[in-house]
Design a protein around this nucleic acid. Structure first.
Length: 849
RNA sequence: GCCCGGGUGGCGGAAUUGGUAGACGCAGCGGAUUCAAAAUCCGCCGUUGGAGACAACGUGGGGGUUCGAGUCCCCCCCCGGGCACCA
């Protein structure tokens, strides 16, 4: 029996593609281009199934487009800055750079045997000085263009380690190493002014027709445009008014208190001679910086003793509270509380015994609010109670608009559009990132570096034996002459958020060795990315930052205006998930990789017998260690099997739970296909409209459809169906032999994107010309796709009772007559006359009695 | 808490977008081949009742619209992603 040995065959074809530089992309204005990009990996050390899934999808698209005559750009690189390298430095004493480049080398070695159609000549890592130096140049241009600012922002502060923590390093409000309660601390930081572009970024979402609707929605909601009003509330005892922002000013009648953020200037001012409040503010600071923590924490408040006048009913006074749930970052950091129409305000009011007063009720139901706030949709009609602007029954939206107009007319408030989107803080107090190219001079202030001094390289000689940023204590690196006056000055020691690195790499791939960030001719030819593929977890931040960056690069002359939306089509693949395994040490969970765990029916244990707790099935991640190594499968079965397996079964956009079971099956199938070629009774020749030829054309149609629609699992199913059809065709006539030869030759072409090595081997054995990778994509003959007769189901009262076979162009009346004549139909009609017969052409017949 | 998804046989999933629910694959069962096994090939395979023809039920739960609902509408439950310093 013929077997295909992947260990021999796969390296052989990879060498052939390599030597003929098959996948090297060269700018050629005469050919239509197609740019396929998968989100580049973080060099964690080993590739995982998520990578294999992601890059196989991209490869299928790239190879199919190539076969369809496009000049394809399909590059690969490394998102190489980030925390894990510093963690490795602290844990193992290795230099972050050495650790990173070793990981890159290892992962490249793991990726190459997968046979991806990548142009490796364009490879780079974001931690290469040639890359981040250009990023520093971009920063300087953006600074000059007014797209960068400096302001204060809160960070997680570990008071024991005296260091800034990432959100991931805060566990249950405590520092991951010290265990100390984390505090919020303000630092002056660098920001990209993305909020200036909020409206533009929002409007342009409409044009992203080939993005998933869910991503467009998530981005829209994230930017969060809202129309509301800013209303000053004047303190009873005089002084500066407290300005509140509200998107529901129509509820003003029900206002019963003012809540301000602990960070609000008024809070701070009052706290100076109110020790109780000062303590409360300190307590509020002992919380991490995430919005989720803030929103889910118990709502607490404390009265300030100050009261303000209700702007409409001056005889009413509203107490001012400091509330831990009010965000300083959004709106004005102050809100008026209307318990009747906001659940959070209602809970707060019940807790602190504040009045609850309806501003409106639903038509026909004027019961006052109890424990559930009355929050109608803006399109719902409500009945306003004694509304100052004279509105009676109206939708909430009409109520809001009328209220804003009324306030503006009396100069009591200002209608205003606000965005939820905040500026992008990029300062990181860490070593392993792109240095921000500015210098702090006592005389000149903040001075940009001169471009000729770029790249500002990270110093090699650093130590990680203490917490904190090693750049801060590296005196010889820090001390530089001021680029402006030449006096002694201090280099900025903050590095850039790693999201900056990944916000423009797609542009750099168009000219990866250029002495400027991009090369306009290359950018014009290759941009935009025609198909971008990556995980849903990047649906908001990475994609939004990239969209901002492309705009910024166009403004600073690094991208053509046509590339301000860098990704024409986006596909978000589902994640590869796996069970998690943990044991407990010192009250904290310790996670274990599936490799170290012996899985039994309903239980699991370590190799030494320690019982292991089986956790939820979640995305594979380094921190939870629920990662499966694809190299095992590649070594056992070969790359084609791994590729075939990840494309089968699960729809690409959905999560897939990794199980070992399918790999064997995939391997068996590929061997079966090979046997059909090696042991088949085949001969090229004339097959005519043979049934197998028709089946082949159907497969061409379905496989092509599946690929263009990103339903690779359906393409795989169609290829299984074709395989079965070939195996079943046992005829010995020349036409049968020719039909099988045609079917298998076509199958080699259709399988080439998914299992390229097997496809080359098939193509060669079948006598194909040249390489299958260079063969044009087969096109289905539409005349061979249609059948002469069709099978229609016949329903009675919506239940299927029979099937009829009719000519594909049969008249409705004939179909009706045939359907009614069916014995099973008559039986189901139970002697009653048909009231109505519904014939949906080509679909169904339904008899109503 | 807020925003966005998802839920279909024992399992992964398909269903031409309102028209035969379960394509295709895995697992399982039965058979062929074999001294035997592996491999391979053929057949069966939603649940319940029935020898069978067939019937009833069936797409997370409850209600609704429709000749007809996995698909549309309302309410609820569960799981996952994101929440601005993980990448």
């Amino acid at each position: 029996m013929s077997r295909l040995n992947a260990r021999v065959v796969e390296p052989k074809w990879q060498k052939v593609w390599d030597e003929s530089q098959t996948f090297k992309a060269t700018r050629d204005e005469a050919k239509p281009k197609y740019y396929v990009l998968e989100m580049f990996p973080y060099p964690s050390g080993r590739i995982h199934m998520g990578h294999v899934r992601n890059y196989t999808m991209g490869d299928v698209v790239a190879r199919a487009k190539r076969a369809q005559g496009f000049n394809v750009l399909h590059p690969m690189g490394w998102d190489a800055f980030g925390m894990p390298a510093e963690n490795a430095a602290m844990e193992k004493g290795v230099h972050p750079g050495d650790w990173t480049y070793q990981n890159i080398a290892g992962m490249r070695d793991q990726m190459k045997p997968l046979g991806f159609s990548l142009d490796w000549t364009r490879e780079f890592a974001t931690c290469d000085p040639e890359y981040y130096g250009q990023q520093q140049a971009l920063f300087l241009d953006m600074l000059e263009a007014g797209l960068v600012t400096r302001k204060s922002a809160v960070v997680n502060w570990d008071p024991v380690d005296m260091t800034v923590l990432a959100n991931e390093q805060v566990i249950d409000g405590k520092g991951w190493r010290s265990g100390a309660k984390v505090e919020r601390r303000e630092l002056t930081q660098w920001f990209f002014k993305i909020s200036d572009m909020a409206d533009e970024l929002l409007e342009a979402i409409e044009g992203l027709k080939d993005w998933p609707e869910k991503v467009r929605l998530m981005q829209s909601n994230w930017i969060g445009k809202s129309r509301g009003i800013e209303i000053p509330f004047h303190p009873v005892d005089g002084g500066e008014p407290i300005v509140c922002y509200s998107t529901r000013p129509d509820t003003m009648r029900g206002a019963s208190f003012i809540a301000i953020s602990p960070e609000h200037p008024v809070s701070r001012a009052i706290a100076e001679d109110n020790p109780e409040l000062a303590e409360f503010i300190l307590e509020c600071r002992k919380m991490d910086t995430t919005e989720a923590a803030l929103e889910t924490a118990e709502k607490k408040g404390i009265p300030t003793g100050v009261s303000v006048k209700h702007p409409i009913y001056p005889d009413q006074e509203l107490p001012v509270w400091v509330g831990n749930f009010v965000l300083m970052e959004y709106g004005t950091g102050a809100v008026f509380g209307c318990p009747a129409h906001d659940q959070r305000d209602l809970d707060f009011a019940r807790k602190y015994d504040l009045p609850v007063l309806n501003a409106f009720h639903m038509p026909g139901d004027d019961t006052p609010v109890g424990d559930t706030a009355l929050v109608p949709a803006k399109t719902e009609t409500v009945v306003y109670i004694d509304h100052f602007a004279g509105i009676a029954e109206a939708t909430s939206q009409e109520g809001i608009d009328a209220t804003i107009d009324w306030f503006e007319a009396r100069e009591l408030g200002t209608g205003i559009e606000k965005f939820r989107l905040r500026d992008w803080g990029i300062s990181r107090q860490r070593y392993w990132g792109c240095p921000i190219p500015v210098v702090h001079c006592e005389k000149c202030g903040v001075v940009p570096e001169k471009k000729e001094n770029l790249p500002i390289e990270l110093p090699k000689d650093v130590s990680f034996d203490r917490p904190g940023n090693p750049l801060d204590r590296h005196n010889s690196w820090r001390q530089v002459p001021c680029p402006n006056c030449g006096n002694g000055a201090r280099r900025e020691t903050d590095t850039m958020d790693t999201f900056v690195d990944s916000s423009w790499y797609y542009a750099r791939f168009t000219a990866p060795r250029a002495e400027t960030p991009t090369e306009m001719a290359d950018a014009k030819y290759w941009m935009n990315v025609d198909q971008y593929i990556g995980g849903v977890e990047h649906a908001i931040l990475h994609l939004l930052y990239s969209r901002f960056f492309a705009r910024a690069m166009a403004k600073t002359g690094h991208l053509p205006e046509s590339a301000i939306e860098p990704f024409n089509a986006l596909f978000t693949q589902g994640m590869v998930t796996h069970e998690t395994y943990s044991t407990t040490a010192n009250g904290r969970p310790v996670f274990h990789t599936p490799d170290d765990v012996i899985r039994e029916e309903g239980a699991a244990r370590l190799k030494d017998g320690t019982p292991v707790e089986i956790g939820p099935v979640i995305k594979m991640s380094k921190s939870k260690k629920n990662v499966v190594d694809p190299m095992d499968i590649i070594e056992q079965y070969g790359a084609d099997t791994a590729r075939w397996f990840v494309m089968s079964d699960s729809p690409p956009e959905r999560d897939v739970e990794w199980t070992a079971a399918g790999a064997e099956a995939a391997w068996k199938h590929l061997q079966r296909v090979w046997r059909l070629v090696a042991e088949g009774d085949l001969a090229p020749g004339e097959a005519g409209a043979h049934a197998l030829v028709k089946a082949t054309h159907r497969a061409i149609h379905e496989v092509s459809d599946g690929i263009t629609q990103f339903q690779f699992n359906k393409s795989v199913a169609a290829l299984y169906t074709l395989t079965n059809a070939i195996a079943k065709e046992k005829g010995a006539e020349p036409a049968d032999q020719a039909a099988r030869h045609f079917a298998l030759t076509t199958m080699a072409q259709l399988m080439q994107p998914m299992t390229p090595h097997l496809a080359e081997e098939m193509w060669e054995a079948l006598g194909g010309e040249g390489l299958v990778v260079d063969a044009p994509w087969p096109v289905a003959d539409p005349t061979l796709l249609v059948e002469d007769t069709i099978t229609l189901p016949v329903q009675v009262q919506g239940k299927r009772r029979a099937e009829i076979e009719v000519a594909k162009d049969a008249a409705q009346a004939d179909i009706e007559a045939i359907a009614l004549a069916q014995e099973a139909v008559q039986r189901a009609m139970d002697g009653k006359p048909p009231r109505k017969v519904i014939v949906v052409p080509g679909r169904i017949v339904n008899v109503v009695v």
